[in-house]
Structures are given as structure tokens and as C-alpha cells.
Design a protein around this nucleic acid. Structure first.
Lengths: 344, 344
DNA sequence: TCGCCGAATGACAGCGCTATCATTAGTTGA
DNA sequence: TCAACTAATGATAGCGCTGTCATTCGGCGA
């Protein structure tokens, strides 16, 4: 069987349904979109006809006529990063059953691509837009501000929301984690970070805040790179860190992959995670609690972020006002064995 | 600034561009879609007008008029599973720059949802469709066979492709992994599997093939569950396995999360991974090589699968024939320390 | 010189739906 | 009883683009 250029099968239209239900196409359209405007009897007849004919609406025609598509555009910088995968999971769970379609755009951490994608999305007259972070390029920002659909910025917080916002303070979260290290008795905490995007930069800032507040000098205990994060990179960065700052007795990683890599590398080097080297990740992926030793991390509420972003959009699309334009989801420090100096 | 119900700004249409370039809208349309049909001079004028006016085509109008959208529908059973995230990464990388849009549908391992999503996607007159696996419901299969767009089934192989296929043999892969365990001297290999979908069932089959070929009896050394996979679940399943089959000296896990969980649990119990307990994962996520001890796994080519799926669709959309309708990407056993009995 | 041809361009209709306004039927109060 | 309303339904005109067919025009062979 060859499939590509077959003749197009007849498409079941509103007209067909109308004929079958002995009414007009516009009434069928109404029965589907605003059922309360159509009498119960007619509605039942129409419902039957829809089922019998297997009518499926054509979103293109609908979008064209109503000047509004059912697309919710979602711009994220990476599809593989499990942090975004979690956000997407929450997002897809919430959108399922709604008459909207999420459409993903992968900006690959590149402002140029983001600008282009925003243009493309806006060309679709989307029902709503979700964008990552608060550090859009001036071009992107201008486009978004002129857009006539609700917009949610996710993953971060900032002073000037384009429209709505749901995230948490990366800076506060990292400061809290660092304070935890200090409170646990580590006196020379270090920071390692891969893929230093704006959010990671804020985490580094939080780390520095805590050091400054505790009167600890940073020394050479910060190692960062723009290389994408991976578990293997954790080992590399650890080596680099210990070479340039051997006094290090604790590490805050800007994500959990790195922390896991550091843990494996420490095991390999015979360094006891906890007693000799404190270790804290970021995001609290599932593996952190299951690891041995279990790894301290800062939990972030990624699924909730996806869920809330959709809910805020839906509220606005339906004309309701969301509970608040800016939602701070916070974070939760999850202390585990990797920051216990007294571990067996 | 409130955004939702602002007046719609004027949209730049082909007509506007045509006026500016002193030509007709249909010629502008052609200049954009089939540049070779328009004289070079006019093309330049049109290009200039497009830029100056910031024209962005309306995909809805295009879809309606041409009876063909630029949507490539992608049905996957899970958005969080990093295996699919990798496939998606390959897919998005390949589709970027092409005039097509991937649209994700999450079937959540439920045939009913899959049927519904296929109907919705087909209602959009997609340019192509990508579906996961070869075990569609009869309803889904009928819908897909009647569809008038190219279709690729990914992640698995089977005898009756709906149209095209790109995957590998889960059964062979698991058999190879099991043979490796046996060859390494483990005499009582076990299988643990979470989220036993059809592909995992075939892996289990491959495990059994190898045992049978080696004359080893399976005993009680198979533990499976339909619970979604996680690292933590690895510990649970290990406990269950060792309780019901203490003779076990090696484990094939149906995915890497589980293997990692087993490794952590073994560490916790003081079982030496390698000498005392052989361990093999499946998929070869990045963490497997970085783990300590490094974990043997079966590498699968997930990004390539996404890439190839798109390429096959593009070939057909453009009227070319793909190199082959069914592509077997194979797999690669990656032997590591977790299956070395002589490890230090 | 004329007719023919292909390349380049254009006119026109219509894709399937919805916004808008018009019409009809049914209800109410004075 | 009838104007004045509301609820329910319908007619009409596009939305912005592309498929199809028509037209124009310069070049070229006979």
C-alpha cells in the first residue's frame, strides 16, 4: 500500500451534519461551541448526527474564521532536559481534555531562534503563549508585549512581567541551599555550574549572597561552563574545582545531573560524600532521594509550574481573571545524607 | 497592562505584500512557495516587501486552502520518560528549519486516548504522522490505514507496517544482553521490568529466549509490574526478586532507571555489583557510563530514530521515496564494570 | 511575416468555519 | 387583543490563502 498521494477522502463538514440533523450548519456550529444557545431537542439530534457521521471539526477553518487558533505555544530552551520534561508533563496533563493544543518550540538557548519562533507562533494567532524565563531579548519582548493573547513567563520571577508569571526565586533557593551547607559545618563551599543560563547565574548570585552573609571568602571555588550539563561533566568539573581549590569541603551544583556526577567521581576517588565533602544538587530529581548516599537537593515544583501556567492561560482565555498575575511557587530544601558530616 | 481582549491588530496579508511589490497576491504566494516559478526581479521586490512589512503567513488559511496543514503529529506514550525525550530531541533538531510543525500527543499508554488523538490529528489534515510502537488498537490501525498522509511507526519493528517504520528489535536486544550475562559466567540471571508495555514484553521474551538457548531454567527470577518506572522502584523490585529467588546472580533490567536503582540498593545492602551481582540496563542513558561502578547497558539509537522518522516523512511529503520503508536501527551492547565478575 | 510555444503572471472561486445581522416563533403584560 | 419583548434559528459574508484555468508576451522557426 502506498499512501502519500491518494485522493483526499470526502471530509465530513458542518453542512453534512446539518443536513442529517435537518438544521443549518451555523446551528450545528453553535451546538458544539455554545450548547446553551441551542434547544435541547435539536442539540440531541445534532449530537447523534455528529456521532453517526464521525464529524471532526477543522481547526484551520475555525482559526481562519474566528481569527483565533486553539494553539497554545510553548517555548522552552531544551527538550531533553528533564527539568523541562517535568514542566511539560504537568502542562500536557492539564491541557488534556481542554479544546486547546500545546505546540512546542525549542529555542535551544538562542535568542535569535526565540525571536523567530515567537513570530511564527504569533502568526498562528495563538490562544496563549508560554515562554521560559524573564530574560527575553528586546525584540522578543516587544513582540510579546504587542501580542493580543495572554502570556505566561515560567521558571523564574522578575519585576516586569510581560503579562503573567509563574516561577520561583533561583537566587533565594541557592542562597538557602548554601546556608544549609554552612549550617552543617562546611566552611569552604564551592559552586559548580554547567550551561550557565540566566537562571543559573542567579543561583550563583544566591550562593555568593550566602557566603558574603557568613563572611566566607569565595576564593577560587566557583567553576562554571556553558557546556550543556551531564552526569559525566560532574566528574570533569569536580576535578577542575579540586585542582584549583583543594580546600573545598562542600559543593553546590547548579543541577542534579552534575551532583550525581560529582558523587560518582567522589566514590571513584575515595572521597566520602557527607563527612569529607558535602554535596547539594538543584531541582530534586527523583534519583536524588534514591541515590546512595542520598543527595541533598533543592526541590522545585516543575509539574505544578506547567499546570499553573495552563490554568492561568485558561482563566484569561475564558475571560476570568487568574488568582494572581505573578505566582511564586517557592522551593523546598531536602536535606539528605550527602550533607551530613556525621554519616556512618 | 491587560492583554486578553484587546482589539486585533491589522494583519499583514499577501494582498498587502502584493500591493507593495506592485504585483498580485497569487504571485507573492508563489514567490514564497515555489520561487523558481517567479522571475528573479519580481522575487527580489517581493522579498523586500515581505521584510519591510514583516509578513508572516497564516498557516490556518494555507491549510484550509490547500487542504493540507504543516503539522506533523507525534504520538508518544509519555512526555517525562527520557527515552522519548531523546527521540523528540532528534525529531525537533531535524524538523527545525523545515516548514513543518511537530505537534505532540501524549497517549499515556492508553489505547482509548490514542484513538481519540489520532482522530483529532487527522482532523487537521496533517502533513505526516509519527506513532509509537506497532501495537495500535484495531480502531487506531484502521484510522491510520485510511489516512492520506505518510505515517512512521517508531521505537519497534513488526511484520505489518502501516506505512513506514523505524526501530529495532527489543527481543533481539534483550537476548543479546542476556547472552552477555551468561557469557560472563552468571548462571542465574533474572529479569526485572517496570511499566510492562508491549516493547518491554518483547524484551522479556528475548531474555527467555537466551535462557532457553543456554538450557537455564527461569525459576522465579522474573519480577515485573505495570507501575511506571523509577529509580526508587529498582530498590523495591530488587528486594522482591531476592526474596523470591535468592540464587539470582545477575539482573537484566528493562530500563536504565531501574538498573540505577538496583545499583544503589545493592550498595546499600553491601552487595558488590559485578562480582556478586551482574547488572545490565537498557537504553544506555548517559548516566550509565558515568556511574560508579559503570553499568552495562544496551544502547539504543533514540535521537537517530527521531531524526530518521522525520527524514522519512519529509522524503514522502516531497514525493521522493525514502531509502527503505522499514529501517532497523539495531542496538549496541555496552559492556561495563557492572558485568565484570573480576572487578577489583 | 505569422503562428506557435513556453515562461511569467494574473483572475477567480472556494476551502470549512464563525461573526454579524436578520428573521421567526413563542411569551408576556396592559 | 396586540405591541414588545426574548429565545431559537437562519442567511450572508467573509477569514487569508491556494488550485485551477486564463492571459500576456517575447522568441523562434517556417
Amino acid at each position: 500500500m502506498t499512501k502519500a498521494p491518494e485522493k483526499a477522502p470526502h471530509r465530513v463538514t458542518l453542512e453534512d451534519v446539518a443536513r442529517r440533523a435537518q438544521t443549518s450548519s451555523i446551528t450545528v456550529s453553535r451546538a458544539l461551541r455554545r450548547p446553551e444557545m441551542v434547544s435541547e431537542k435539536l442539540r440531541a439530534r445534532i449530537a447523534e448526527a455528529v456521532t453517526e457521521l464521525g464529524y471532526v471539526p477543522d481547526p484551520a477553518a475555525s482559526a481562519l474564521a474566528s481569527r483565533r487558533s486553539n494553539v497554545i505555544g510553548v517555548l522552552i530552551p531544551s527538550v531533553t532536559n528533564s527539568v523541562f520534561a517535568d514542566v511539560l508533563a504537568g502542562l500536557y496533563d492539564t491541557i488534556a481534555g481542554q479544546p486547546f493544543n500545546a505546540q512546542l518550540g525549542n529555542t535551544r538557548y538562542a535568542p535569535g531562534i526565540e525571536d523567530a519562533l515567537i513570530r511564527v507562533f504569533l502568526g498562528q494567532r495563538p490562544a496563549g503563549l508560554i515562554v521560559t524565563g524573564v530574560d527575553q531579548s528586546p525584540v522578543s519582548r516587544a513582540l510579546l508585549e504587542a501580542a493580543d493573547c495572554p502570556i505566561v513567563q515560567i521558571m523564574d520571577l522578575g519585576n516586569a512581567p510581560i503579562d503573567m508569571m509563574v516561577g520561583f526565586s533561583h537566587r533565594d533557593a541557592a542562597r538557602t541551599a548554601t546556608e544549609h551547607l554552612i549550617a552543617r559545618g562546611y566552611s569552604c563551599p564551592a559552586f559548580i555550574g554547567a550551561r550557565m543560563d540566566p537562571r543559573s547565574e542567579r543561583r550563583l548570585q544566591g550562593f555568593r549572597d550566602a557566603l558574603a552573609a557568613a563572611g566566607i571568602t569565595e576564593g577560587a571555588r566557583v567553576v562554571t561552563t556553558t557546556t550543556p550539563s551531564s552526569v559525566a561533566l560532574g566528574e570533569t568539573l569536580l576535578a577542575q574545582l579540586l585542582a584549583q581549590a583543594p580546600e573545598t569541603d562542600a559543593i553546590l551544583c547548579n543541577n542534579d545531573d552534575l551532583a550525581l556526577g560529582v558523587q560518582f567521581a567522589a566514590l571513584r576517588r575515595g572521597i566520602a560524600i557527607g563527612p569529607e565533602l558535602g554535596l547539594c544538587g538543584f531541582n530534586d530529581l527523583e534519583v536524588m532521594a534514591a541515590a546512595h548516599p542520598s543527595i541533598t537537593s533543592v526541590r522545585t515544583f516543575r509539574r505544578e509550574m506547567g499546570k499553573l501556567a495552563i490554568e492561568m492561560l485558561l482563566a484569561r482565555i475564558e475571560g476570568r481573571d487568574p488568582d494572581a498575575k505573578v505566582r511564586d511557587l517557592g522551593y523546598a530544601l531536602m536535606p539528605r545524607d550527602s550533607t551530613r558530616r556525621d554519616r556512618a
